[in-house]
Amino acid sequence: MKRILVSAVVLSMLFAATAFAYEVVDVKNGGSIKGKIKASAKVDDLVLTIDKDVEFCGKSQPARMYILSPALEVKNVLVFIEEVQKGKAAPKTDITIDNNKCVFEPLVGVAYKGANFVIKNSDNILHNTNLGLLLKDKRSTVYNLALPTKDQVITKPIRRGGLHAIKCDAHAWMRAYLFVADHPYAAVTDASGSFEIKDLLPGKYKVTVWHEGFAEVTKEVEVTAGKASDLSVTLSKK
């Protein structure tokens, strides 16, 4: 009897919890958000000075931080909707994070809760891949994995959502950024600063435009069925 009561209680609590989870539905004739992200002025890319494992990594490295086209279109900007109640299912694709020639590949990406981080070391030196949620003036470690051996691969489930910053404690210049969610509504801009987020249910969405070197912008965008809403933003350097 007691067991039944307890399970009834647990069940009702579970029910309350699922009320907040992302709801997967079939999206037919959804709308989209697309646009171009530009910089307000020309910014030169930085050169990083390297002072660890110089024999292997070299003495300096382009930061690949400011990748701008002649028209000031910015590559590698993350455009994402932080919270979505309802929409299409996120893909189950894993994301590979490679420690390759002392940089992380990719530098910027999108990953999905429920899939895996596949972390790889292609270098013949020690790297450690330290994933953490990027918070205001601090971070929150999600995994910190040592990869002391070349060609080592470690797979870990993606459990927490939000903007992740990846660092390597052994090499302070190494970094990468991933947006992780339980929904698929996020994108990274290409070399022409363009992005597209497809198959959204009609409604209002809070969209964040994020890049490590520019000030963050959040905008509300209205999406209508079967149409593309424009979100073109000009970013200023941080």
């Binding site: 330290n130 910190n144 994995l145 040592a146 404690d169």
Partner: peptide, 16 residues
């Protein structure tokens, strides 16, 4: 070093 000391930079060697 099996679990790593999360938040400190000391990594986990459980998988390596």
């Amino acid at each position: 070093y099996t679990t790593g000391l999360d938040g400190s930079g000391m990594p986990s060697y459980e998988d390596s």
